[in-house]
Design a protein around this nucleic acid. Structure first.
Lengths: 201, 201, 201, 201
DNA sequence: TATTAATCGAGACGGTACGTCGAGTCTTTAC
DNA sequence: GTAAAGACTCGACGTACCGTCTCGATTAATA
């Protein structure tokens, strides 16, 4: 799960032995989610996960290089994909962060996502994995939309992607991590609106 | 340290024996800072702190109710007070968050502040303590300034303090916690500018 | 228990902190005995001992340098002291090995002693500890008696202590370890008789 | 394996038919011997054997009912057959235990034989297998010789085979298992002499 | 001045978790 | 049908930490 070798070589692979057990991995991820929701990041324990999932610790350590990446995987498996049907720029931008907010709004998702974010901030491997996801799912789509808007001269041309990320994502972290406050309705739309206003010519 | 003597009772105090050792507490806080900078939040251990500070674990547990609050105290002891000399509204707002950014920009401060924020997000007690500090040092001053601006009709009247906090603080968390990215120069000024622009009539 | 520091220095010892818990150590030794009797040497596990004794593994590892020495201690605590009242040479010699045989004859003692002997044969530390006991409790007394007999010209003068140990102890190991056969009555007397006959002038 | 010595070690063949692979079994036994010599009985592991022998664990468990019997087989494959050319009774008896002593005297043989004996003492199956070997190779020949001597009235008629085994084998165990002491030259002859003397009319 | 209560360091204690290794079983692929 | 490879569950390994407790020594206010 963490890293697929992807079988790049077209040569015959002489892998003998059984394949990875899918049911076991699913049970582990579910147990990780439960454990994160209950115990947070520091209280999280691999022993408990193994107990819950009826899996052996060996199996967990075999497939994930570190505890942190395990937590990130578990959280990512919870985040839905972006909704379709956006018509204007604001809706398109809002759609990018909508999955994050939907997860943060759900009862268990709130706890799980928070704990996974702590893992990403505390653990080197987890951080890289999480930032990889952010880059692919948030930064790249956002850049495309902003580039288009800049081409149409809707926004100014000297926009900076990192600044835009600050404006778009920062408020989510503030509510989710720092204040533990609920995220109101239409939050993503409001952030998108702010971002566009901030970049107006 | 966590809570001031609380001497609520005005009745006769039968205090016998030595007072709290200031040198020991200072050594503990310093050790906590070093430990947080080195090991992060999950890797943080009271045993190591006691070892570093040449203190007994009992002494630590006597004065702090939980590990998390200990970490918050250690981080707060690092944050300088707000600078004076602000003339306009933007500078005043920027001055509120300047101490946070200065700490986040320093080498060790970056690690310590991040770890303490994780503590606040992961631990109930630590969270309350941290949010208390935020309320006193950020939210209240900010509200006063914004109220003044609204009275002068510089900003619109339906401003919301939580939204303002989102805009002002969110970008810091994004850089510090999520991206582990450096915080550029004049960051606080830029956020203050954004906030005022966002609230313009 | 394993090694007494013996406090050779008459100077004041500035050991601070609590002392070793005697009840805990006794519970551990009893648990070790039970575990050895049930599971033998290879099946012996420190985890089980800790569970049985309601002790933490740390406490066990704090006071015993290795699993093997722990087992030897537990077995030695079971061996009674040599009986008195021996009149002739044969009875004196028999009295030396009588405690071993009594232990080997008892139900649980049989299993415990066997397992501890395996520990001594398999583990370096345990072996040294066990051979130290053998030397002090068997070899030295035996040498004194034989020297006396040689002086009285009851036995010949070119006797060798290691050969004598072979003759006196070997049969016990054969019954206890190799054959798992019961040790008959008056076994120690018979071995003593054989030894004297073997060394006759 | 369980019975055949299989001491020949031809070059490894990659593929075997539905028959049992002799080369694999030989490699396993050799690996067991190395492992026993290096790690003793408690430290012995099937995983290591499989790794060393490039064999699958399944293959090991298919052909041996337990770890202990595997060790016994490995040790037995090391014991040479009894030497010929004995003329008198003492030499005949000595010839019976000479293979054991030769093995115990060899460098690796010493370690392997000791570990296998521990297996026999600690493990039920291994014990039965080992005592079966003892009965066939030691007890039965010894009984025949002693019966002959008794018929010739060289020894007395009320001899007991178990007592004789005590006397003949005990010293070996004492040296090999308990004292870890070297076995001197002509040791078997000396034990045989003692046994005959002990049984003299 | 002697008593006494609070504090300190050191560290033992029962527990839980760490990350690794081994036991014994099962599954997949190759021959 | 046998073999190598290796994944699986379970549990032990020896170490580290948690939070509590006990021990002497030290210190300052009270008697």
């Amino acid at each position: 799960m963490s890293d697929e070798p992807a079988n790049t070589k077209p040569t015959r692979q002489r892998r003998q032995g059984p394949k990875r057990s899918e049911t076991s991995q699913a049970a582990i991820l579910e147990a990780v989610r439960d454990e994160l929701a209950e115990s947070g990041w520091r209280g999280f324990s691999v022993d408990n996960v193994a107990r819950r999932a009826q899996a052996s610790k060996q199996t967990i350590y075999r497939w994930w290089p570190s505890i942190g990446t395990l937590c990130i995987d578990a959280a990512l498996s919870l985040i839905p994909s972006a909704p379709d049907g956006a018509r204007d720029a604001q809706q398109k931008i809002a759609a990018i962060i909508a999955p994050l907010e939907a997860t943060a709004r759900a009862g268990a998702g709130n706890y799980i996502l928070r704990a996974a974010l702590l893992a990403a901030a505390d653990d080197e491997d987890a951080g890289e994995k999480w930032r990889g996801w952010i880059k692919a799912e948030i930064r790249t789509p956002l850049r495309m939309i902003l580039a288009e808007l800049a081409a149409k001269q809707v926004i100014r041309r000297d926009w900076n992607i990192e600044d835009a990320m600050d404006v778009l994502l920062g408020p989510i972290w503030h509510r989710l991590l720092v204040m533990r406050a609920p995220i109101p309705e239409a939050f993503s739309l409001r952030q998108a609106e702010r971002l566009i206003a901030d970049l107006k010519v």
